[in-house]
């Protein structure tokens, strides 16, 4: 539980950070809230020689809500996500999810960028970004590019980000007014990763589901976007048969590990229960 030795850098601009990363490429890691990286360093599973702490980069700490698009800077904390009334009004699932991440002390430090960037399958926000079809903005020595959240995750801790890039912000279309959403997460205790969790966002018009998106957390080595499950809902009255079809489609794409949270069989079963409950809650909230 004692990390190896490292040099600590605290740049105040993004260019400076990218420059530092370029000069130590392969030996440097980006530190934001530290709640994924520091435990890994204490276990010596991560042994960076250079830590580049981005929390002083002011430009990365804002939530901007435009007419059609929402931009969230990488160092926005979960506490900020919870406390933004404007965000909660137009995209309530971010507050709902943030409140299910760890505890208040951790949420005061943990950032959305850290949560999505490193590809930890236990993190909650990657599934929400699947749900929202978000873009991740990556900045490197050659400039800026965007990668779809749905294309970002390759395997556990393997992502589309290059070693010389920093994830600087997250963008997604503002969800339509009147949508319903919900994140259901079962865990063993506060601070634990999900045994299974599901996010649902849908619209209902005249009793019929007109759009739907479903995503799941910690049920495979990447976050899961359950496209077939969502399609099972679209056009339905969100009746028991449609929900059962969505649950079956969602369960079909899970591939959880057997671990202390339970055997794979249980976690797959539970994924379906979380999907079902999230659909029901989102439905009740829609309109």
């Amino acid at each position: 539980m004692i990390p190896g030795s490292f040099d600590y850098h605290r740049p105040s601009t993004i260019d400076e950070a990218i420059g530092l990363l370029a000069s130590h490429v392969g030996d440097a890691l980006i530190l934001a809230g530290g709640h994924s990286l520091i435990p890994m360093m204490k276990l010596r599973m991560a042994t960076p020689e250079h830590l580049i702490d981005i929390q002083d980069i002011y430009d990365l700490s804002a939530i901007s809500i435009g007419a059609d698009q929402i931009d969230i800077g990488a160092t926005v904390t979960q506490a900020q996500l919870i406390h933004s009334e404007e965000l909660a009004d137009c995209c309530p699932i971010l507050r709902e999810t943030s409140l299910q991440i760890a505890d208040p002390q951790i949420r005061n430090l943990g950032t959305i960028g850290g949560n999505v960037a490193n590809g930890d399958p236990g993190n909650d926000m990657p599934a929400i970004m699947q749900l929202l079809d978000a873009d991740y903005v990556l900045q490197g020595p050659d400039g800026t590019r965007t990668v779809k959240a749905r294309a970002y995750y390759e395997a556990a801790y393997f992502t589309a980000r290059s070693e010389n890039e920093i994830l600087t912000s997250i963008r997604f279309a503002k969800p339509p007014a009147g949508h319903g959403s919900s994140y259901h997460k079962q865990k063993r205790k506060i601070g634990d990763y999900a045994t299974a969790a599901a996010a649902v966002m849908l619209e209902v018009s005249n009793g019929s589901c007109t759009s739907a998106s479903i995503a799941m957390t910690n049920l495979a080595d990447t976050p899961l976007w359950a496209e077939a499950a969502a399609n099972a809902l679209i056009g339905s009255a969100l009746d028991a048969d449609a929900i059962a079809a969505a649950v079956a489609a969602a369960r079909a794409i899970t591939n959880p590990a057997s671990d202390g949270r339970g055997p794979a069989e249980y976690r797959t079963h539970l994924a379906g229960i979380m999907v079902k409950r999230a659909i029901e809650t989102a439905h009740a909230r829609a309109g």
């Binding site: 079962q186 063993r188 045994t195 949270r261 339970g262 055997p263 249980y266 976690r267 079963h269 539970l270």
Partner: peptide, 17 residues
């Protein structure tokens, strides 16, 4: 009696889906 073991008990008794 953690979640999965309790569920397993319910499953063995035929109480789950």
């Amino acid at each position: 009696h953690d979640h999965w073991r309790v569920w397993k008990t319910a499953q063995k008794l035929g109480l789950t889906d």
